[in-house]
């Protein structure tokens, strides 16, 4: 069964079709990259899958279950995690707090009023483990505002991992990262590959071709090609639409 299926999904912003009849099946445990020029509709697609955007048409299902009408938190509770293209973190909280919140979300309701959540090992230990995975443990106590751009990207990933997702949507996780940081992120994703289903949106083609099992190419809201990395790289239509002379 596919991990995620988009079935003739349409999203319009006024006259603009940001998702134009998108049909896509992401297989279980595959690392599926989505590439496409700026404004192609990649982030829109993530918004549709997470539920932040309501489609104008089509259905979306996860593990065979129709989730089109589910709310954002319900989809998250069902195992969907995402990172934001433009970092979204809880300012004023430490890095560890941010991750602990994701852990807490998985442990049922939060109507617990009297125990100090910052001293609950059930929250803090998994949070620290997730920070360790992204190599950010030494910054655990830092407030979000004190972190560098690259560290914030790592923290985004730690938050997503802390919720132990079945399906991970990453929106340009390497955007704005330095060479070294990018390489570390690629290594990290390589380590996750095969363990959970990952949808990766990324402009860094070296990263995409080294990581992806399959690639979909999105242009003006339409999927013009889906296939194994090699097939996409050599596809003429893709080259002219997006890759240009670069590939």
């Amino acid at each position: 069964m596919s991990a995620l299926v988009l079935d003739h999904v349409v999203k319009r912003f006024g006259a603009l079709r940001a998702a134009d009849d998108v049909s896509l099946a992401i297989e279980d445990k595959e690392l599926h990259a989505i590439i496409g020029p700026n404004g192609a509709g990649k982030t829109t697609l993530i918004g549709l899958v997470t539920g932040e955007l309501v489609p104008n048409g089509g259905r979306i299902s996860m593990q065979g279950q129709d989730i089109t009408d589910w709310t954002v938190p319900r989809r998250a509770q069902a195992g969907l995690a995402r990172s934001f293209q433009i970092t979204r973190l809880c300012e004023g909280f430490s890095a560890e707090d941010n991750v602990a919140l994701a852990v807490q979300a998985k442990l049922g309701h939060s109507f617990r009023f009297l125990r100090n959540a910052r001293k609950e090992p059930a929250l803090r230990e998994p949070a620290r483990a997730a920070l360790q995975r992204v190599d950010l443990l030494d910054r655990a106590d830092r407030l979000v505002g004190e972190l560098s751009h690259g560290e914030k990207r790592q923290l985004e990933l730690a938050i997503a991992l802390a919720s132990e997702p079945r399906l991970l949507l990453l929106d340009e996780p390497m955007a704005g990262m330095g060479q070294e940081e990018s390489q570390r992120m690629v290594a990290l994703l390589a380590g996750l590959k095969g363990k959970i289903t990952i949808v990766l949106i990324e402009h860094d083609m070296d990263a995409v071709f080294s990581l992806a099992d399959r690639i979909s190419v999105l242009v003006a809201g339409r999927v013009i090609k889906t296939g194994p990395a090699e097939a996409v790289r050599s596809d003429a239509a893709v080259r002219s639409a997006y890759l240009g002379g670069e590939a």
């Binding site: 998250a76 934001f84 809880c90 979300a105």
Partner: peptide, 11 residues
């Protein structure tokens, strides 16, 4: 601090 972030992690 960030409502969208909180919803994205399931609240």
């Amino acid at each position: 601090a960030d409502e969208r972030r909180m919803m994205a992690i399931g609240y």
